[in-house]
Simulated assay, not measured.
Amino acid sequence: MTRDASELAHRLAREAEAVCRHYLSNGRRQGRYWLVGDASNTPGRSMFVRLKDTPKGPAGKWTDAATGAHGDLLDVIRECCGLLDFRDVANEARRFLSLPRSNAEPSSNVAHSRAPVGSAEAARRLFAISQPVAGTLAEVYLRNRGIFALRDDGALRFHPRCYYRPDEAAPTEIWPALIARVTGLDGRITGAHRTWLDPDGFDIVRLGKAPIDTPRRSMGCLLGNAVRFGTADDVLVAGEGIETILSLRCAAPMLPMVAALSANHVAALLLPLQLRRLYIAHDRDAAGDFAVAAVTKRALDAGIEAIPLSPRLGDFNEDLLAFGIDKLREVLREQLAPQDVVRFMSLTAAETG
């Protein structure tokens, strides 16, 4: 272990219980140990973390009786947060160590309390412990949907062990997931959207989504808010699905866009005060027709020009997969206002020749 790692592990061990309450919140203290399912914070009792120095060993050391795995609190941070590089693990450890500590009893410590299931706070915590998409199954999933070389807006992350429960009576399952950040106009996280993924790879029927009944779910406050790509000024593209918007984003990466996650939420989307032109990505179904009509009326009432963008097939991701990126750019250029083609697509045209 390097000197830096050894020092960080020692500092974490001095606050072992606080570390466990923060990263292993599904466990509980029992005597001199913290019991939990595993280092990824799965509920259970097979892993125990030593909270105090004892003749058997120092604080911060843990053992998983089910697998024989063992380690220190840096390993807990790596596993729980899904981090790969030590630099990221060290940065997260330093961030935790810089947090203020409360002298209150653990039961009244708000920082370590569980967030209500499905709440905006739960969404913020989920997004915080997720990792960048690059090099993960989420990147593979997007590539299988024809989505390549996206600008990193920080709106998407990946969690390797995201909880899924089919219903309240069913046991909790664990699947990898693409996590999307839902924000308000002020940039504050209000929710998160989860797309659970198939760890075995791409399937032509499920298109890479996990083989579960509802592989997409949202949490937190969605009404009026959206997953945002780029910073909207006077022009914005709004649509339903993340893959639909990301497909358009491949064709026009400089054009600000939002995914409202459903037709009803497109209809209720809060529009920036400075907005002058709104493009609505149209999904070709009854719900999509409703969304276009509803948000168009709201935009026109606010003095905003509203222009629908229509795919050739069911949605723009279907178009991208069927016809390719060049044809999608061509279709988009035909439907955008000429000044927006010059403003947002000239770089793309230059790059693609």
Results as ranks from 00 to 15, higher is better:
148 F>R: 12
131 Q>W: 14
180 A>M: 08
173 E>C: 08
89 V>K: 00
108 S>E: 10
159 H>D: 04
175 W>T: 00
182 V>R: 06
81 C>L: 15
174 I>S: 02
160 P>A: 02
76 V>H: 00
175 W>P: 00
183 T>Q: 09
174 I>Q: 05
100 P>H: 00
96 F>D: 06
126 L>V: 10
102 S>R: 02
90 A>G: 05
105 E>T: 13
103 N>M: 04
157 R>A: 15
124 R>K: 12
78 R>F: 13
129 I>M: 13
136 T>I: 13
82 G>R: 11
98 S>M: 14
154 G>M: 06
96 F>Y: 03
138 A>P: 07
139 E>G: 06
125 R>E: 08
187 G>M: 06
109 N>H: 05
143 R>H: 14
111 A>L: 07
149 A>F: 14
139 E>C: 07
161 R>S: 11
164 Y>L: 05
170 A>M: 04
150 L>W: 12
147 I>L: 06
83 L>S: 08
153 D>E: 13
147 I>S: 04
167 D>Y: 05
98 S>E: 10
159 H>G: 09
182 V>P: 02
127 F>N: 05
100 P>K: 01
121 E>Y: 00
128 A>E: 12
130 S>R: 04
105 E>Q: 09
89 V>H: 03
87 R>P: 01
176 P>T: 01
125 R>N: 05
127 F>A: 02
97 L>Y: 01
156 L>D: 01
150 L>C: 05
156 L>Y: 03
160 P>R: 09
